[in-house]
Design a protein around this nucleic acid. Sequence first.
DNA 1: TTGAATATGTCGCTTATACAACACATCGAA
DNA 2: TTCGATGTGTTGTATAAGCGACATATTCAA
Lengths: 190, 190
Amino acid sequence: MNQPKTDPRIQRTRKLIMDSFMELSNIKEFKEITITDIAAEAMINRATFYYHFEDIYDLLEKVLSEVLLVNLNCSNYPHNELTEEAITSIFVAITNFQKSLSNRCHRGYEDTIARIIREQLEIIFYQLLSPQQHSEKDEGLRIMAIILSSGMYGASVDWMRNSHKITPEEFIELAIPHLLPAHHIGSPDN
Amino acid sequence: MNQPKTDPRIQRTRKLIMDSFMELSNIKEFKEITITDIAAEAMINRATFYYHFEDIYDLLEKVLSEVLLVNLNCSNYPHNELTEEAITSIFVAITNFQKSLSNRCHRGYEDTIARIIREQLEIIFYQLLSPQQHSEKDEGLRIMAIILSSGMYGASVDWMRNSHKITPEEFIELAIPHLLPAHHIGSPDN
DNA sequence: TTGAATATGTCGCTTATACAACACATCGAA
DNA sequence: TTCGATGTGTTGTATAAGCGACATATTCAA
């Protein structure tokens, strides 16, 4: 929740690097972006890059995670509950994220991107599934989170490929009756 | 001409501080801006401010100098010569600068601002008056530069107060015939 | 295939920035 | 006046960032 405050120098430099990477992504293919490029664009020393990231794949991973998280956090789910609303807004966030990616030529890294999306979704679904402040791990909920994250991601891929005629909201709402048992919908007794 | 490259950290931090100060100037009076404010806005430590500037007056001075220099360098005078063109564009730069200041409430520091403008102008006029690459100091030219800088500044103040009906170009061109001996106008033999 | 050019990681040392603490000044309200 | 709150400069120490150098890839053209 509240980390012990990260050094502002680290915040600044990480932002500089990430922004420069996204900027370069608009110009070049991912494969053509070098760490030397990024350091030059960010006006930082190349060695400093390695202080923050393992390598360029680590950077890609963290940039994507962050962009995705920004999308997801826009909708602040109430009371950590997995409602129809929460599912819909998560699905919209995923499709938005994927649409924004398709503009930024990351061709050839679909599987990396897919893995990152699923990992982030898994974390979020696990939180939504867990009872309040329940910090002990529950293997059943973890597996359920995996199923939901993979399922949502697969659905988003399908929507991207085939179903541009209907909105993501309409698309996912077609599935919700089958996904959530009827008596769970609408936060039953609380 | 080409300094041995200043540390990029210094460039970044100085820019952060200066930009934050200008940003705050749009919101508050100069008197109400504290160093604590600036540090917070720039997301730097307050102690770091003192690594770059003596105090808030030093900052004001350097910010104004820089803004003024940007205005002045827009018109890149040919061959370091004090022509009618050069005088006109310098005068326009001064009035532009003063107009931009009047939007940014610096009331109560007119004399400080006036001194800074005159100092910068003196440097520029001295360069324009000096023969090419002539690095030895000439007291006569220095005094002439003082006269020109004070004179131009005074003229700009007068224009600000009274003569908004005519453009700065028209204003200063009225004086040029009297200012420059006729045979000097128009870069005589070159 | 070779060789030159460029990119990647890493290291040691220097410098800039963060942070907490301090003494002092200023200011406004009790 | 006195006190509390806030701002100013300064200092000592920890850490992030800069910089040059190095060994090792990778690329690409001869």
